[in-house]
């Protein structure tokens, strides 16, 4: 156990180091840095979805809450002129607040029904962005959402520069993953997994299941909102279509392919599948077909997901030692 812990710590450190020096490795290729930013955002989204999963359910409203964060930050910028430094936190807060209110009735539903009800929630959120045209801009969306500047006194960093934005996104992704990792490894995390394993038993053991579910859902949605704000200021344009069901589904797919039991799963899944999608772009017509094939193959041939690879390798080498 201790050895696993140490090697996983080494793996995390290596990943962090790799992502820090990645721009240098790719020779500051602007396009690859863009891919890096997309990977970061996908990792953040998938990880926060995984946090909900640690309680045993899956939300299809995740893209919707990401949208709430994105729209809050974007409208604060375009209507009130407040920069992303406000939008990030207010977007997350707004997303969390709405999640809290919705979670109260939503948590009455269970298992598959939760899944479906959350899908309806996500769809209504998206539809509202389109329906209230005067406020949210309708299907037209919101344009000119600029990235912020940071005056450090001796130097001014303009995050419209892609490299700067990469490190900004990386910072918040690391923050998101760290927060979720800490919660997961704490006593609260154990409570979550006990709810995941057996809700009824957890309830009888004196755990307030409902409260834990609502709080975890709120935190995860607030983190999704934060990701949404980062997304909006990077893409500079958002519309209701940016937050449709497919976004939630792809986040879910990242979690499944990566692995369901550790926080490393969604991280690995989001990184690898985003890279695969990017590699497939040049295949034109076949892009979607190939992506679907990769997805099915990953699920069928690698049960448990990417997170099981280290364990598999270890047992493989142990066997060959003998």
């Amino acid at each position: 156990m201790e050895q696993t812990d140490r090697s996983s710590r080494i793996a995390w450190a290596a990943l962090l180091l790799a992502s820090l020096i990645a721009p240098v490795v790719v020779g500051f290729d602007k396009y690859l840095i863009h891919v890096g930013i997309i990977i970061s955002l996908n990792v953040a989204l998938a990880t926060s979805l995984w946090m909900i999963w640690s309680l045993g359910f899956i939300s299809f409203a995740h893209a919707g809450f990401m949208g709430i964060g994105a729209y809050t930050s974007a409208l604060l910028f375009t209507k009130l002129g407040l920069s992303m430094w406000y939008g990030l936190w207010l977007g997350a807060a707004m997303s969390g607040a709405i999640a809290l209110v919705i979670a109260l009735p939503l948590m009455r539903t269970r298992a598959v029904y939760f899944f479906m009800a959350s899908w309806a929630v996500g769809e209504v959120i998206k539809r509202n962005f389109a329906y209230f045209r005067d406020f949210f801009g309708g299907w037209d969306g919101v344009f000119n959402i600029r990235a912020p500047k940071l005056d450090l006194g001796f130097v001014e960093v303009n995050f419209a520069d892609r490299l700067a934005y990469y490190y900004l996104a990386l910072f918040f992704v690391v923050l998101t993953v760290l927060v979720i990792h800490r919660i997961n490894n704490s006593r609260t995390g154990m409570i979550y997994w006990s709810i995941h394993e057996n809700e009824l038993l957890a309830q009888h053991a004196g755990i307030n299941v409902f409260r834990h579910k609502v709080i975890a859902f709120t935190i995860a949605c607030a983190l999704a909102g934060l990701t949404g704000a980062l997304y909006a200021h990077y893409q500079t344009y958002i519309s209701p279509k940016s937050f449709d069901i497919w976004k939630s589904e792809f986040a879910l797919v990242h979690v499944i392919v990566g692995g369901l039991t550790t926080v490393g799963g969604p991280v690995a899944g989001a990184i690898s599948l985003t890279v695969v999608d990017e590699l497939l772009r040049a295949t034109g017509y076949f892009r979607t077909v190939f992506f679907g094939a990769v997805l099915i193959a990953a699920v069928l041939l690698l049960p448990g997901g990417l997170e099981t690879i280290p364990g598999r390798l270890r047992s493989f080498f142990k066997r060959s030692d003998k």
Binding site: G141, Q235, Y237, S239, K241, S242, R281, A282, T283, G284, Y285, R287, T288
Partner: peptide
Amino acid sequence: NYDTKGEVA
């Protein structure tokens, strides 16, 4: 040619 799936991003 690169595919865009008809999505903005």
